[in-house]
């Protein structure tokens, strides 16, 4: 059999194509899951149409009240402590009114507000800029409103960090493991080069538990379904004046701050 160069190239091309199709078909047959198996939402999980959180600042009085919440979250989620602001990773933390609500500064606030710490965490926005900018859908929106992060898929481009108006996201600038005091063996750590943040404790919701911060807040943090008019968060928001961070940006943050609290109806 003799063939000229053109024919030979054609032959090679077709053979390659055939091989490719064959290989992918075999792959498809073998990769198909088991017919009878299925994936279901865990029975007994807490579910909602739109999860949201209310921060009732009147319930937090001492420094310990705040620290307990932060420590509880960071401990169960294996959040490292690098001890320097450059590498810092945090899921929930505090800052003053001036820095929590920049642009809303008021020189004549009562002294107690000027220094009062406010909780900061991911706002799980309706219209999350981080989700919009992520080039791999590593950060995405769940149907219950939670802005979720897929560490397996994150390429570490940090576009989401530039996009988040709330500074809610942290990057693993280096291997976090050596900086976790005691690793909780039931929860993964992260690897270097991925972005992380608060997840409203999806792993606990799946087990029918409230987020950890809510559990240890002594009623200062209230978590519930914003779409359900009878939920506790809705009841509180109906009777209290609430604030959201940078709501003017149209992101639709789902963390609400109430200041008073005492005049509970």
């Amino acid at each position: 059999m003799s063939m000229d160069r053109r024919e030979f190239l054609k032959f090679i091309g077709l053979a390659g194509l055939g091989l490719g199709i064959g290989a992918s078909a075999t792959g498809w047959i073998f990769s198909r899951g088991l017919e009878a198996s299925e994936y279901i939402p865990p029975p007994g999980a807490l579910t909602a149409k739109r999860w949201a959180m209310v921060v009732d600042l009147s319930k937090f009085k001492t420094e310990e009240d705040y620290q307990r919440v932060i420590d509880a979250c960071h401990k169960i989620h294996n959040v490292p402590d690098f001890g320097n602001p450059k590498d810092e990773i945090k899921w929930i933390w505090t800052d003053t009114y001036e820095h929590t609500f920049p642009g809303q500064e008021n020189k004549f606030l009562p002294k107690e507000f000027e220094e009062k710490p406010f909780f900061l965490l991911c706002n799980h926005c309706d219209n999350a800029p981080c989700v919009r900018v992520c080039p791999t859908k590593a950060t995405f929106k769940r149907s219950d409103g939670i802005t979720m992060q897929d560490y397996h898929r994150c390429i570490g481009c940090r576009f989401c960090m530039a996009a988040c108006p709330y500074g809610a996201r942290s990057f693993n600038w280096r291997d976090p493991r050596p900086f976790i005091k005691e690793i909780d063996p039931t929860y993964p750590t992260r690897t270097k080069g991925v972005v992380e943040k608060c997840t409203y404790c999806v792993e606990r919701l799946a087990k029918g538990l409230q987020p950890k911060c809510v559990e240890v807040s002594n009623g200062g943090l209230i978590f519930g379904d914003l779409a359900d008019p009878n939920s506790e968060v809705r009841r509180i928001l109906n009777t209290h004046f609430s604030l959201r961070r940078k709501a003017e940006l149209g992101t639709g943050p789902s963390v609400f701050y109430i200041i008073g609290g005492e005049e509970d109806v």
Partner: peptide, 23 residues
């Protein structure tokens, strides 16, 4: 399924349920 679809339970071919978790 667990992370992206919030389907954290696996029902195998025999109908047994498992929590989806490597660790």
């Amino acid at each position: 399924m667990a992370l992206r679809e919030a389907k954290r339970t696996y029902r195998n071919a025999e109908g047994k349920l498992f929590e989806i978790s490597l660790q």
